[in-house]
């Protein structure tokens, strides 16, 4: 059994690498959405993670330290979001936009101050996330090469999909989270601290986006490039909508977008102009958004 030429194992294997940053950020967005927070700072949080993963890994010469730094930094930026949006009741959309711009400028500023470079930072001392070869699975035809040989962050992201599912629907905390999102007044009356739950959800999204950024800068490549999140945080926002804020749905949406990302990358090798292949993920995202919203509207109208 063999696959058609473009759709080979390398493509499918790379798809999983491309899925992961979007998936992790989307899980963060999902938790916020469920708590009634519209988080459009995913892009900035992911970029934060990408930068601090490289910075941490460079200084400690250890990839795990990089991932840890990315998660802490993501949480700190998310803390600013939460403090302003929940603590001071600022406009979440404005704060989200401003944070994205702060991180876009701030990471370049730090790139200059910490490493004295502009544009990109690459150094042999940055330890990348290694690849894990899954025993047994590795031997299976077709599936083996697709599922095996990813970084541990990729496998962790799959586990986190299940963990989110369990947390949301089979745990008290998830019940409270959903209550806060759906009926904040009722939740408040029942003694749930709405502000605290939302605060926590935002911090969680910061940690998850930090992880997403780490996969981007230490998993797929081993360097930091200015603005390297390149709209993936926004694609994650769409993945949350597409997956209807449901972990499995969000996972499937991320698979679609990750596939679009990797096929765009792959098509470059076939000789298509790079501008068109770079467009693929965004256009696919727009079309997907369009189709689901249109379908949902028909359902709402009872057609």
């Amino acid at each position: 059994m063999s696959l058609p030429p473009l759709l080979d194992e390398t493509l499918l294997n790379s798809t999983f690498r491309f899925i992961t940053p979007i998936l992790l950020a989307a899980l963060g967005g999902l938790i916020c959405e469920r708590a009634g927070v519209f988080n459009i700072a995913l892009e900035g949080l992911m970029l934060t993670g990408a930068f601090f993963a490289v910075a941490g890994s460079y200084h400690a010469q250890n990839a795990f330290a990089g991932v840890l730094a990315a998660m802490v930094a993501g949480a700190l930026v998310a803390f600013i979001f939460a403090a302003l949006a929940i603590g001071l009741r600022g406009n979440m959309i404005v704060i989200g936009i401003a944070l994205n711009l702060l991180v876009a400028g701030g990471t370049v500023f730090l790139l200059r101050t910490m490493f004295d470079v502009r544009g990109a930072f690459q150094d042999p001392r940055i330890a990348g996330l290694g690849k894990i070869t899954l025993p047994v699975v590795d031997q299976i035809a077709i599936l083996g090469p697709i599922l095996s040989g990813h970084s541990w962050v990729v496998y962790l992201s799959w586990a986190l999909v299940l963990a989110t599912q369990v947390l949301l629907f089979h745990h008290r905390l998830g019940l409270r989270l959903r209550g806060v999102g759906e009926q904040p007044e009722a939740a408040e009356t029942l003694g749930v601290n709405v502000g605290a739950i939302r605060f926590g959800a935002i911090i969680a999204s910061g940690v998850l986006c930090g992880l997403a950024g780490a996969q981007l800068s230490l998993g797929q490549v081993t360097l930091f490039v200015e603005n390297m999140s390149g709209g993936r945080g926004w694609i994650a926002v769409v993945a949350v909508m597409l997956g209807q804020a449901h972990p499995i749905g969000v996972f499937l949406a991320s698979v679609l977008f990750g596939f679009a990302d990797s096929i765009g990358f792959r098509l470059q090798g076939v000789g298509l102009p790079s501008q068109f292949t770079s467009m693929v993920p965004y256009v696919v995202t727009l079309i997907a958004l369009f189709i689901t919203q249109a379908r949902r509207r028909r359902v709402a109208l009872g057609q």
Partner: peptide, 12 residues
């Protein structure tokens, strides 16, 4: 790039 940081902080 400090300029970009300052601008974003103003908005925040």
């Amino acid at each position: 790039e400090l300029s970009r940081v300052l601008q974003a902080i103003v908005i925040l």
